[in-house]
């Protein structure tokens, strides 16, 4: 019992030692997705998320980056992923009804749905020449 309490204290200290912001810039190529996932997984783990949540967060970020690479830049590889690509209006992207979707065998467009299912909040901020995807996942108590 005492051990587990001590472990929790140590984890808390290491969490507090984390910088407030961690950042990574990668070229907008799908070959960098694994690097993105590793970075996000490592950060999420250090923030104190459990394994399943770590995987979910990494997947959500993978989906966000994949969308940016495919849709905003159309596979142009000379852009960094901060999403400064084509203007994007999230309200115009309809969330598919899964039964209808699956019954019609439509392909693609699943990424945004996954992001919303895996994270607590997904927000899109449209700024001049820059789109920001902000995803929030709360630590469970």
């Amino acid at each position: 019992m005492q051990n587990s309490v001590r472990k929790k204290e140590i984890a808390l200290v290491s969490t507090l030692k984390l910088p407030k912001k961690l950042s990574l810039n990668v070229p907008s190529k799908t070959e960098h997705l694994s690097e993105v996932r590793d970075f996000v997984s490592d950060a999420a783990r250090r923030f104190g998320f459990a394994d399943e949540e770590v995987s979910n967060i990494a997947l959500a970020v993978d989906e966000a980056c994949t969308n940016i690479i495919k849709h905003a830049y159309h596979f142009a590889s000379d852009k960094d992923i901060t999403n400064k690509g084509q203007h994007f209006e999230p309200d115009k992207v309809a969330m598919p009804d899964m039964k209808e979707y699956l019954s019609k065998y439509k392909r693609g467009g699943l990424g945004m749905l996954l992001m919303r299912k895996l994270m607590d909040k997904v927000e899109y901020r449209i700024q001049p020449s820059r789109n920001v995807v902000r995803m929030v996942k709360y630590l469970s108590a």
Binding site: E63, T66, Y105
Partner: peptide, 15 residues
């Protein structure tokens, strides 16, 4: 690991 891109491949061929 599988992302939606992978899921999409199954959608593409099942029919």
């Amino acid at each position: 690991y599988i992302s939606s891109a992978g899921l999409g491949v199954f959608m593409a061929f099942i029919e």
